[in-house]
C-alpha cells in the first residue's frame, strides 16, 4: 500500500512539474512583452526599468529557473497590473469564497443527485424515473450561464426573494449555489441510475433475494454500497473543479471568488496572475485526483491489486 501511495505521489509531482513548465513557456511565448501590451506609450527608459524590475530582460531560461526557485519557496509571483499584490495573497483572500459556494453546491448536488438516481433506478420506466431523467437531461444540457440568467431575471423582476448579486449574507448564497449544483446534480442522478441498474442485474442480488433478504436491506446494503463506488471517482474530479468550475457563476453574480479574479486577470492580461492561478487550479485538481486514487485503493482492493500487477 505504501509503495502504491509513494508511486502515485511521485507521479503526481512529475505531472505537476510538466504542467508548470508547459504553462510557463506558453505564457512567455505570447508575442510582445507584458508591459507593452498593458501600457502603449511608455518612454523607452521607463519600459526598460519595468522590464528589469520584473526580470523580463533576462533570457527565458534564467527566468524559468528563477520562477521555479520562487515556486519552491511558496512564492507564486506578483501581479503585473497591481504591483505589490502577491498571487499567494490573492488565493488566500478569494479561495475561501469560491470554496464555500462550490462546496455547498457540490454537497447538495451530490446528495440530491445520488438520491434521485436511486429513486429513478428503483422505479425504472415508471413516472418517477421519467421525471428524474427529463430533469437530469435538461440539467446537463442547459448551459449554466443561461440558467443563471433565468434565475437572475426571475428573482429580480417577479419574486425579489433573494439578492441577485453580491456577497456577504446567507441570502447571497442561494442563487449561485442553486446554479452551481444543477450540473453535478443532473450528472450524479444519471450516473447513479445506470450504476444502480447495473448492480440490480448482478447475480448476488438475485441470491440475496432468494435468501429472503428484505428489499430495504437489499437496497441499502447490497445495491447502494456497490453502486456508490464508481461515484467516488466522479466526486473527486468535482471537488477539483470547485475552484475552477465557477468562472461564469462568479462573474454573473458578482461574487469575489477566485474564478472571477481569474477571469478579470485574463481580461487585464495580467499574465503573472494567470500563470500563478493556473498552477493553483491544476495543483488542486491533480491533488484531489491523487486523494481519490488512494481512497479508492483503500476501499476497493480490486483496484489495488490491479495497480500492483
Amino acid at each position: 500500500m505504501a509503495k502504491f501511495i509513494l508511486k502515485r505521489i511521485l507521479y503526481m509531482l512529475v505531472v505537476l512539474f510538466c504542467v508548470i513548465t508547459l504553462t510557463f513557456f506558453l505564457v512567455h511565448s505570447i508575442p510582445g512583452d507584458p508591459i507593452t501590451s498593458m501600457v502603449q506609450d511608455l518612454p523607452i527608459e521607463t519600459r526598460d526599468l519595468y522590464l528589469q524590475k520584473y526580470g523580463f530582460d533576462q533570457p527565458l531560461i534564467v527566468q524559468y529557473v528563477k520562477f521555479i526557485q520562487q515556486l519552491l519557496t511558496g512564492d507564486l509571483g506578483q501581479s503585473l497590473r497591481y504591483p505589490g499584490r502577491q498571487v499567494v495573497d490573492i488565493v488566500a483572500n478569494y479561495a475561501p469564497v469560491s470554496g464555500i459556494i462550490g462546496g455547498i453546491a457540490l454537497a447538495i448536488g451530490f446528495a440530491v443527485g445520488i438520491l434521485l438516481g436511486i429513486i429513478a433506478a428503483l422505479n425504472r420506466n415508471r413516472w418517477p424515473d421519467r421525471l428524474v431523467m427529463v430533469l437530469a437531461l435538461l440539467g446537463t444540457t442547459i448551459p449554466t450561464f443561461v440558467f443563471a440568467a433565468v434565475l437572475q431575471y426571475v428573482f429580480t423582476v417577479t419574486v425579489p426573494l433573494f439578492p441577485t448579486t453580491g456577497w456577504g449574507t446567507w441570502g447571497h448564497l442561494v442563487l449561485p449555489v442553486a446554479c452551481m449544483c444543477v450540473g453535478p446534480l443532473a450528472s450524479y442522478a444519471r450516473y447513479m441510475r445506470s450504476s444502480v441498474l447495473d448492480i440490480t442485474n448482478q447475480d448476488f442480488i438475485l441470491t440475496a433475494e432468494a435468501k429472503g433478504v428484505s428489499s430495504f436491506r437489499i437496497v441499502s446494503r447490497h445495491i447502494f454500497r456497490n453502486s456508490f463506488l464508481p461515484c467516488i471517482t466522479m466526486i473527486c474530479t468535482s471537488i477539483a473543479g470547485i475552484f475552477s468550475g465557477s468562472f461564469i457563476i462568479e462573474s454573473i453574480f458578482a461574487i469575489p471568488g477566485l474564478g472571477k479574479y481569474f477571469i478579470s486577470a485574463i481580461n487585464d492580461r495580467d499574465y503573472s496572475v494567470v500563470l500563478g492561478l493556473n498552477i493553483i487550479f491544476t495543483g488542486t485538481y491533480i491533488l484531489s485526483i491523487l486523494v481519490c486514487d488512494i481512497l479508492l485503493a483503500i476501499i476497493d482492493p480490486r483496484i489495488r491489486i490491479a495497480e500492483e500487477n
Partner: peptide, 21 residues
C-alpha cells in the same frame, strides 16, 4: 495522454485562447 488530461479542460482552453490572442 495522462499528463495532458490531468489539466482541467477549461483551463487549457482559456490558456490557449489567451496565448494565441
Amino acid at each position: 495522454v495522462e499528463i495532458l488530461s490531468s489539466v482541467p479542460n477549461l483551463l487549457v482552453v482559456i490558456m490557449m485562447s489567451v496565448v494565441l490572442e
